[in-house]
Nucleic acid binder design. Sequence first.
RNA 1: GUGGGUGUAGCUCAGUUGGUUAGAGCGCAGGAUUGUGGCUCCUGAGGCCGAGGGUUCGAAUCCCUCUACUCACCCCA
Length: 426
Amino acid sequence: MKKFSLKTVKGFNEVLPPESFRWRVVEEKFRELLEGYGFAELRLALLEPTELFARSIGDETDIVEKEMYTFCDRSDRSLTLRPEGTASVVRAYNQYSLGKLNEINKLYYVGPMFRYERPQKGRFRQFHQLGAEVFGEAGFYQDAETLVMLAQFFHELEIKGVVLQLNSLGCENCRPAFRERLQAFLKQRLDALCGDCRRRLDENPLRALDCKNPQCREAVADAPLISESWCTDCREHFAGLRSLLEDVGLEYEVNPKLVRGLDYYTRTTFEFLAGELGAQNAVAAGGRYDRLVEELGGKPTPAFGFAIGFERLMLLVDAGIAPLPRPFAALIALDEEALRLLFPVHVNLNRGVRMTTLGFQQKSLKSQLKKADKDGVEFALIVGSEERARQEAVCRNMKTREQFNLPFVRLEEALRELYDECRRSS
RNA sequence: GUGGGUGUAGCUCAGUUGGUUAGAGCGCAGGAUUGUGGCUCCUGAGGCCGAGGGUUCGAAUCCCUCUACUCACCCCA
């Protein structure tokens, strides 16, 4: 490998053709689906005041503690490249009083996020998320609609083997009691816990529940479950969601130890897991966060949201889902005069559709046909001195090898007709 | 932050116990056919063998350091 001194920063992910075409197709499907459900796009700042993330995601989370790209600008303000989207959406919701424009707000976003972690499969420092948030709906119908919509997205992309896991973290009324119970339980088993879990015992004991450390897993195997502490409202919310999902036939697993790494979640939390992804197996995740809008200075507003990891999603999407765009015909000029003749035809045909290619270097007919074949065109239109004498181009069907003549005066028209004919028959 | 693996052509990789001028496939360019693609054949371009140091008569090969990439831990989408 050649050594270049100028290259991308470690973990900063770039998307090159032909992969970029596939990204576009998948992103377009996401937009169509979301907009069909009444979501509107939000294009937000990538850089935010650091305190926004500290207050929303939580001071004690790994993201805030050690994964943020934080720096001071020239006026010594602490800024952070967004590590996730929800905080910014909520900030915007409050800043622009979006709740006053519509009672219900359904918003989505697409774009890069930044976390300073060691890159590995399905994980980068700059990565991309497709995300959405709904504000103003407290009931479980909203949870169910969003989950079904996500399942439909995976179905449209023909992704198999994605499993939905569900849990409920309770609410401000019942979670504190559970926290204390869990803390008491964990304190009895302090010796069995890993350093991280011990450290988080006071601030965020719930995290011990989904710690991957084998010893911790064993220690919390018979820990009290949050479901035992749910208040009536939380119990009804979760039961309502489950029965709705069953009504529409969306399969799921309840995972009572599913705890999200961000502090703002209440009640429903979920992950869509894909075994193919290896260690980073969550392709989408999210949940309900009924307190966050208020905590960031807005009016009390219930909310539900999710994010999909774009890179991880693309690892699951079969290449066949997004065929590469192919030009329809190759215009082949064998000399300078032919090139001048074909150039206007070329530029007139390629508006909005990839109709033609035209080589400017007047290479041999053979090499131009070879190129046309590689491009996968349907027809090759050849113009050289013989054709100019006749005022007719040779048009070659690349599949059947049949050739016929097209008068110069109606080249554009004839190519359009051929194109329409091909599209009808395919 | 902690481990493991790997760096040889644009890509995927061979390269024997250390031994002359470092190879293949694919891709790219040209030709076999003075103007007809896919198959075949021929030719060509393209390498500081990741970098630096050491051992040796001699290093892609052995040793050390660094670096990049990668997988995993942690955590997350």
